[in-house]
Computed example of a mutant assay.
Amino acid sequence: MAAMVHSREERITPPTTAQVVDAVGPRLRSLRERRDVTLAALAAETGISVSTLSRLESGQRRPTLELLLPLARAYQVPLDDLVGAPQTGDPRVHLKPERHGGRVVIPLTKRTGGVRSFKQLIPPEPANSDRTLRTHEGYEWLYVLSGRLRLLLGDRDFDLGPGEVVEFDTHTPHWVGNTTDEVTEVLCLYGPQGERAHVRTRPARGD
């Protein structure tokens, strides 16, 4: 008599309401730190006091719609992203793309300090787009994966293609964009306090 094998589906117990609520604070703190936003700046944008934001992130204040709606608007994310249940059954890190203007930014690390890495998808820039050179804290390293990248750096103009790398101090006035008719993919390392990537080269012959 042939043996009968019965398959059994593994069921994952969904999180309780209390677990979902408890996860909101850490999720808000992580989102704010990934975007380098201070509590004071967030308070000014949302009208929520610094003390309330701090208590909300630490779990000492219960999240309500009156608090979460202005935060969702400030971060430009769906409300579900702030209160959604954490993913289960998969230990891998899930990093969601973020939109900044027309660009898609995919964080590749979850660290909040030191050098961080991103992948950027930069759409073609309109001919009349704002190309004002700007400065900010930090140091940036860009590697073009596909397409072409244009970098205006001080009084210099760079046209970079796949496999080309550029690094620069972001205190130097700069503009980064895409003046072609296809999407450009770029790998970016960014040190908010001016940290630089450590590049090792092969020793010269005879060394």
Rank of each mutant, 00 (worst) to 15 (best):
R61V: 14
P15M: 11
R27L: 01
H100I: 14
L133G: 06
K96I: 11
P91Q: 04
A2H: 11
L68A: 06
L149Q: 13
R134N: 05
R73N: 14
L149N: 03
V144W: 10
P26K: 02
N178V: 13
R196I: 12
E182Y: 06
T170N: 09
L53E: 02
D155P: 03
Q193C: 09
A204Y: 08
I106H: 03
G102E: 12
V50A: 10
T135Y: 04
T46Q: 08
H136T: 13
E125G: 10
I12E: 09
R92K: 05
W175Y: 14
P14D: 04
R205N: 06
R196N: 07
H136V: 14
D22Y: 07
H94M: 04
E33M: 09
R99Q: 09
A40S: 11
W141A: 15
V165N: 01
G163M: 01
Q120Y: 11
H100W: 09
T170Y: 09
V50I: 15
A18T: 15
G194E: 10
R8W: 06
R205Q: 12
P15C: 04
R27N: 03
G47E: 10
L68Q: 02
D130E: 10
Y143W: 06
Y75P: 02
L153A: 13
P78Y: 08
A127Q: 10
G138L: 09
I12Y: 08
D159L: 06
R61S: 15
L53H: 13
S54I: 13
G59Q: 10
R205Y: 10
P86M: 01
T109I: 04
P126E: 04
L56N: 12
S7H: 12
H174T: 14
I106Q: 03
L133H: 03
V115A: 06
D81W: 00
R99F: 05
E137I: 05
K110Q: 15
R29I: 05
T170V: 09
P15Y: 07
S146R: 02
T135D: 01
L28E: 02
N178I: 15
H171W: 12
W141Y: 07
L28N: 04
G194Y: 06
P123M: 03
R29A: 07
E125R: 08
R92P: 00
T88R: 10
V37S: 00
G25H: 08
V5F: 05
L53V: 07
S51F: 03
T109N: 10
T64H: 14
G161N: 04
D22P: 01
R27F: 01
P203M: 02
G114I: 03
V199W: 00
E125P: 00
R34D: 06
D90Y: 02
V20K: 01
T135G: 04
Y190I: 01
R62Q: 14
E182G: 10
D157C: 02
H6K: 08
P70T: 14
D36H: 10
L187Q: 13
P63A: 15
H100F: 12
L31I: 11
L53A: 06
G102N: 07
Y190G: 05
R150F: 13
V21M: 14
A43P: 01
T16W: 01
P15R: 08
E45W: 00
L67V: 15
L69Y: 07
P123F: 02
P86H: 05
D36W: 01
T184A: 15
R111T: 15
Y139I: 07
L151G: 04
T88N: 00
R103A: 12
L65R: 14
L121V: 03
